[in-house]
Amino acid sequence: MSPELQTVVALVLVALAAGWLVRRALAKRKKPGCGSDCGCAAEKFKSSLKQ
């Protein structure tokens, strides 16, 4: 893969990662919590209450 193409692919990956992190942060703001990362009450339990 040429260096130019590598740069394009790398920047696309960075944009995707940044977009995902921003989305994750905004989602947390709507429903603050650990996002089930820490082993406390998992989201699947909480969401099932709404059904």
Partner: peptide, 24 residues
């Protein structure tokens, strides 16, 4: 095992995302 899975999932998602952005 649950904790190991949480740790690895966090490394493979959140830490990976931050590492990629940080590399940039």
């Amino acid at each position: 095992g649950g904790r190991a899975w949480i740790f690895l999932r966090r490394a493979g998602t959140f830490i990976l995302g931050i590492s990629i952005v940080l590399w940039f």
